[in-house]
Computed example of a mutant assay.
Amino acid sequence: MTEIRQLIYQPPREPPAPVETMSFAMLRRLDDGWTQRGDFHVLAVVRRGCGRVSIDFSDHRLTKRNVVWIRPGVVHRWQDIGDLVGDLVLFLPTAPITPGSRDLADDPHASACWAATDTQWPLITTALGHLRVEAGAAQDTRTRELLGLLLSALLLRLSPPTSAGRAANDIYHRFRNAVEEEFRVHHDVAYYGRRLGYSPRTLSRNVHAAIGRSAKDYLCERLVLEAKRLLAHDRLTPARCGQRLGFPDASNFSAFFLREAGVRPGAWQTANLAVRP
């Protein structure tokens, strides 16, 4: 039986808006401590207090001026949030945001949790306040357009740190999207090169320019992350996990996981299930 709760975006009113705002007080009323995975973005801005959030097997301590960005499909769990004060913004991947903010929303290498700088903080809180007011207004075509613009302004003001500050490029974006669609079936960089019309060398050069790692490294990291989700949250056996991820037999998957994670999948699962609440 899975221990992960799948969340579907359900705005509280009609007509539905692509953006919703809420407080940590409301989150405390709704959250029951389950590990969750949603089909929407969650942005949280902490004004004061302390707490924790676990995001894809990484624990983050939360305090004043921390920003959290949980993207769709990311496994997470809120912990010890009893005294947190701040705002959360929920929005769909299809929210009408500007191209620059879309690049931020689609970047899987942007940080999940970071501290806003002294310069950023007043700009973030101003953008957040304006968005909160419009999100509470009556919904019509004009309001929906304003919500997209105000959300875009907030995302651009947040400016999450990215891998070594490297700028992404079109080839990398296409590769990333292709991997997300087919990583459970295709583990060969050459396949993605053929699909996108580039040699493996050209593909890896562009991926490295965007994120500082090779295309093969990116593909392996995505596989390992999904394997950990399946082992820890869905509690699949290592053999079943390997099958789900397209490995021909359990020994191949075990060798791959050992090489990438430094431990056998069964041992990793046992250790992580042992510390789960």
Rank of each mutant, 00 (worst) to 15 (best):
L147Q: 11
Q139R: 08
D118K: 06
H187T: 00
A135T: 06
A190S: 06
G197A: 12
L203V: 01
G129Y: 10
D188P: 00
T162E: 00
A209N: 00
L203H: 13
E145C: 10
R144C: 07
E134M: 14
G148W: 14
H173R: 09
P161V: 02
L150E: 10
G136C: 07
L149N: 08
R194L: 13
H130D: 12
Y198W: 10
P160A: 02
G197Q: 08
H186P: 01
R195A: 14
L123A: 04
A153N: 13
S199F: 07
V133A: 06
V207F: 02
T126S: 10
W121D: 00
V207K: 02
L146F: 12
E180F: 15
F175A: 01
L203D: 05
P200F: 04
L128P: 10
T143G: 12
V133D: 03
L154W: 12
E181A: 12
P122Q: 00
F183W: 09
L123E: 04
L123N: 03
I211V: 02
E182K: 13
D170S: 07
N206T: 00
R174T: 11
P200K: 09
L149D: 09
L150G: 06
V207S: 01
E182T: 15
N206I: 01
V185I: 05
A178H: 04
S204N: 04
E181Y: 13
D118V: 02
N177Y: 15
S163V: 01
R142D: 09
G136Y: 09
V179E: 13
L155W: 13
P161C: 03
D170I: 09
A178G: 11
A167E: 15
R184Y: 04
H173L: 11
R166F: 13
R132P: 05
D118F: 06
A116R: 06
A138H: 12
A115Y: 15
E181I: 10
R194K: 15
A137R: 09
W121R: 00
H186L: 07
T143V: 10
N177G: 15
D140F: 14
Q139C: 03
E180M: 15
G193M: 11
P200M: 08
L156E: 11
W121V: 00
S204M: 08
R132C: 11
R184E: 09
G148H: 02
E134V: 14
P122M: 00
L150H: 14
S204A: 07
L155V: 14
A137L: 11
P160W: 01
R144Q: 02
V207M: 02
L151P: 02
H173P: 01
S199E: 06
A210G: 01
L154Y: 08
H130F: 11
G136K: 08
D140H: 11
L151I: 02
R157P: 03
H186E: 04
Q139A: 07
T126R: 04
R176P: 06
A153Y: 08
T141W: 13
Y198T: 07
Y192I: 05
L149H: 13
R184H: 08
Y172F: 14
A210W: 01
Y172A: 05
A168M: 12
C113H: 05
A178K: 05
L155G: 04
A138K: 15
L131E: 05
N169W: 04
T141I: 03
Q120F: 07
L150C: 08
I124Q: 14
E180N: 13
D170Q: 09
R144H: 05
